[in-house]
Amino acid sequence: MLASRAGKSSRMQLKASYKFAAAALAVAALMSAQMAPTLAIGPVPTVKAHKGEVTVVSLRAVLPPGFHANSNTPTDAYLIPLTLKWTGGPLQSDAITYPKPALEKYSFSDKPLSVVTGEFTITTKFKIPADAPSGPSAQNGTLKYQACNDRMCFAPKTLPVTLTVNIE
């Protein structure tokens, strides 16, 4: 009898904990909708390359659910595009390939917008000059994005990106 009561009480506590956790997280999610989302850049790979060759580097990035950023080719001239720039280092940026944008419709826009959401990858094709210095060094760049949700937008942000490069 006591064991049965204890079991029932435990199940009720578990149910209550579950509801509480769900409610807390739901409210937290609602509150976070008013905060600027942070674009997380995945682990940046170490680039091992040989002089005179070409190498391709992929950068993975993730936007939190519920947010989007303009793609590199926004549909409106006033929108700020996703932009990766390599600003210094031993490698020569030859071509940058952005993720394929999604055309999504939002309540604040008459026409679909060209956006990226969730996890996406930007690849850069680098040339390694024949006279590049041997050994370890760094390739620096920036990733600029401007994010919104369906009710509000957040100021453009520029994140630093650094690749560890090892030229042989």
């Binding site: 904990s17 956790a21 807390a24």
Partner: peptide, 14 residues
């Protein structure tokens, strides 16, 4: 499980 949910709730509220 219960402990995880409690932790989740505490983290959510915090």
């Amino acid at each position: 499980m219960k402990s995880f949910l409690r932790t989740l709730a505490v983290v959510g509220v915090a």
